[in-house]
Nucleic acid binder design. Structure first.
Length: 784
RNA sequence: GCCGUGGUGGCGGAAUGGUAGACGCGUCGGACUCAAAAUCCGAUGAAGGCAACUUCGUGUGGGUUCGAGUCCCACCCUCGGUACCA
């Protein structure tokens, strides 16, 4: 095996010495900005990171070879819950814990040889970064895009803190869910709903995977419908949204959400129901309020329920038509609510549009006609209006936690912005596990906001800070932003498809409206990568996950599953261990080869050995190579140019590096067979193609052949002359079944080809051909 | 529940509607070696057959088409997200 350790560390040293990955912010070359989602410093780099950064690194190196000035930065998303938990559990300061993790992970990253411009590194937990979060917050207040409002949260009485839904679930699982209530707190929000329409239409301008666009579309959830007013005798009327006004005669109940204004008028039973937190949100849970609303169409009194399934958006109230809505049907079944058919149906429930019945003068109309007619009648009475509704809620950014950006607000004389930025996190705090630690600080002051910001705020604009990360006067220099207005390619896990990516798009638009950015959309192209999985071994006898090295011969007692690598399942594979054993380049090659980037990847140590073998063969070939006059070999040249074409295509289109690497392996095999005909140019072209994937060995071999660094070389070009084939083999089918192959000249006439084909498969034809299909050069099919 | 993903040999995967299984792993056989490792060469979807070859085969059931892994409909399973994990 080639000496990968020596080669890798010496190449990395050379790269660092020459600072060849640093980016000129003001470069006048063509520019390309490739970015991987910034990591949370959990303490150790995992294979998911390696995969993410390898994908980005390949693109960065390829683009450099194409003559682009490439921006490829890295930093740390270093605020967040785990640091605070470590503080509570082990008495470590969150800052120390975080910084220690960062320095460890940085070391690991450097050993993996990614082509980052480290001079741009950022850390979101440093005041020089979060200062600008606070500055943005102030701007948003000025713009009317941040406001304070009451909202329900999961509140743990014993811990005196807010819990995430995930934590609530965990608490219920371990039988500790009893003290969790729904509590109303006054909190800060960002008005993302003001941008709902833009965020929706903006999706059309970006080159993102269709499924991610659809998820965002559905999350925003635009629906056109009607807001209908129903009277509650003795109270204000209630407004309910519906997209199916045609079913209004079928209303047999009304449901409101748990934060609806009407609840304040209700008794303790309902209020207690609202406070309860239960595990199962989807069981059609609801309670009758004791009040009725009047259906303006027929004057009928229908019961009002508070129901879990009504989301806190829009009017927070929906009409219940069990006959024609499946969820309403289930709710009605559970609560014994009556059902009335108003769309002619064979069977109930029936959610399809159709012809109306039981609907007075609207009987016999189609749904669409009826919606118009019914809306017109009600709007004359002032009881209904057309309305566009969104599922998207405003973004609650307040967190009752320590390790985040302090919200820069003082409450001395009402609500006041604190303009002396940064408002730094106090260090004289206690981590007792109960309440917000900031409240224990003496230095922080009594009149300040003690909530911190959601960490999604940090990660919503960090890519802009990279442009000018050491700027102390401004969030970034506008001139540099004009040079690098968008991320050309953004790479990260599909788990961020909605929240992070939607928040970032929102903040970017806000910044654009503030005149800070020149484009509306931050990420021109998105690649969502799959997870890295490996086998986990769960022992059914002692209920523990075993490390693979601790397994017995006999696995009868074990549940073996392929799942996401994680600490708790003892199935993680440490990148540095693999790099030590097989080399960094082999790790990269394997992780890129084992699956296309967007798919989940199954870890397999045998596979990485295969990658190392491949690189060893490359090394061997170059070691044995001598520069001398050789004859041209058309097959070798065709293979070479076919591979250049293939790899370039992958780079320019879908980034399916697994296919590109397979092509490189095929080329290597051909070059081995034909090594007597191999010249320096061909060998060099092969190494160029390989270099983005396996940069250490490639640069090492280049230096042996008299060059320097591949990112300073130019990407090879296809010569179409070599790709042409004179003889094509065309498969023949009879009735769609493969029956043979013939070789034809590329200039042969159709008739001649068919005659030859008939001869070749005569025994399957028996004379009577009904139809002949010939797709030139591709396929022949006879129907008999 | 809702929104989205995926399902192809023993395994990871490849395949603009046109020869299913490229490439790699594993396995088997051979070469080299005193031997082993490494390396190199060859075979490898399943069933039947001495063989030529035949039949079957891309989660399940239907459909469109000369032709479907690929398009359409229904279903099953899997994974991600679900607004305070990041």
């Amino acid at each position: 095996m080639y000496k990968f350790k020596e080669i890798e560390s010496s190449q990395q040293k050379k790269w660092e010495e020459k600072k060849i990955f640093n980016t000129d912010s003001y470069s006048n070359k063509k520019r390309y900005y490739v970015l991987e989602m910034l990591p949370y410093p959990s303490g150790a780099l995992h294979m998911g990171h390696v995969r993410n950064y390898s994908i980005g690194d390949v693109v960065a190196r390829y683009k450099r070879m194409q003559g682009f000035e490439v921006m490829h930065p890295i930093g740390w998303d270093s605020f967040g819950l785990p640091a605070e938990n470590a503080a509570i559990k082990r008495g470590i300061n969150p800052k120390d814990w975080t910084d220690e993790n960062i320095s460890q992970m940085k070391l690991q990253l450097k050993k993996l040889g990614f082509s980052y411009d480290w001079s741009r590194e950022i850390k979101t937990s440093s005041p020089s970064y979060y200062k600008w979060n606070q500055w943005l917050f102030c701007k948003m207040i000025e713009k009317g895009l941040a406001y304070r409002e009451k909202a329900f949260v999961n509140w743990s009485e014993s811990m005196q803190t807010v819990l995430a839904n995930e934590q609530v679930e965990a608490a219920f699982c371990s039988g500790k869910g009893d003290d969790i209530v729904q509590k109303e707190l006054t909190q800060w929000f960002f008005k993302i709903t003001d941008y709902a329409e833009e965020l929706l239409s903006g999706l059309d301008e970006i080159d993102w995977p269709e499924n991610v666009k659809i998820m965002q579309k559905n999350w925003i959830g635009r629906s056109e419908g009607v807001e209908l007013e129903l009277d509650i005798p003795g109270f204000d009327s209630i407004k309910a949204f519906t997209t199916r006004l045609d079913t209004a005669y079928g209303i047999t109940f009304v449901s409101i959400s748990k934060s609806h204004w009407f609840i304040q008028h209700l008794g303790d039973e309902v209020k207690n129901f609202v406070k309860q937190t239960v595990e199962d949100k989807d069981g059609g849970r609801g309670i009758f309020t004791g009040h009725y609303a009047v259906n303006p169409f027929n004057g009928e009194r229908v019961p009002i329920y508070v129901a879990d399934y009504v989301l806190d958006y829009g009017t927070k109230a929906v009409i219940g038509v069990p006959a024609h809505d499946i969820r309403d049907w289930e709710f009605a079944q559970k609560h014994g609510i009556k059902v009335r058919e108003v769309i002619v149906s064979e069977e109930l429930p029936n959610a399809e549009k159709g012809i109306l019945t039981n609907s007075d003068e609207f009987d016999g109309m189609t749904s669409d006609k009826a919606i118009e007619a019914m809306l017109s009648k009600m709007s004359h009475l002032g009881l209904a209006s057309k309305k566009v509704n969104y599922r998207l809620k405003d973004w609650l950014i307040s967190r009752q936690r320590y390790w985040g950006t302090p919200i820069p607000i003082k409450y001395e004389n009402g609500i006041e912005l604190d303009r002396e930025l940064p408002v730094e996190l106090p260090e004289d705090v206690e981590f007792s596990g109960s309440g917000n630690p900031i409240k224990t600080s003496k230095s922080f002051g009594d009149s300040r906001e003690t909530d911190t910001m959601d960490t999604f705020v940090d990660s919503s604009w960090y890519y802009l800070r990279y442009l000018d990360s050491n700027n102390e006067r401004e969030i970034f220099d506008g001139e540099i932003e004009k040079h690098w207005p968008q991320i050309d390619l953004y790479i990260g896990g599909v788990e961020h498809a909605v929240m992070h990516l939607l928040y970032a798009r929102f903040i970017h638009r806000v910044m654009s409206d503030l005149g800070l950015t020149t484009k509306k959309e931050p990420f021109k192209r998105l690649l969502t990568q799959g997870m890295v999985l490996s086998n986990s071994y769960y022992n059914k006898r002692d209920n523990k996950y075993y490390f693979p090295k601790d397994l017995p011969e006999n696995l009868d007692d074990f549940d073996v599953k392929m799942e996401k690598m994680s600490k708790s399942k003892n199935n993680g594979v440490a990148p540095e261990e693999m790099a030590d054993k097989y080399g960094v380049d082999a790790v990269r090659i394997f992780i890129l080869f084992a699956a296309p980037p967007e798919r989940d990847l199954e870890w397999n140590e045998k596979g990485i050995a295969g990658a190392a073998r491949f690189l060893n063969r490359v090394h061997q070939l170059v070691e044995e190579f001598e520069v001398k006059e050789v004859e041209e070999d058309s097959e070798l040249l065709r293979k070479l140019h076919y591979t250049i074409d293939k790899v370039t295509n992958v780079m320019e289109t879908n980034l399916h590096f697994n296919v590109a690497i397979a092509a490189l392996m095929e080329l290597l095999n051909t070059m081995y067979e034909k090594r007597d005909f191999l010249n320096l140019d061909a060998l060099m072209d092969f190494l160029k193609l390989l270099s983005p994937f396996a940069p250490h060995i490639s640069d090492h071999l280049l230096q042996k052949l008299g060059g320097q660094f591949f990112i300073k070389e130019s990407w090879p070009e296809v010569d179409n002359r070599y790709l042409k084939r004179e003889v094509l083999s065309v498969p023949i089918q009879v009735n769609g079944k493969h029956r043979g192959v013939i070789e034809v000249n590329d200039n042969m006439e159709k008739e001649q080809v068919l005659t030859l084909a008939k001869e070749a498969v005569s025994k399957y034809i028996n004379g009577n051909i009904k139809k002949e299909i010939y797709v030139t050069g591709k396929i022949i099919n006879f129907v008999v």
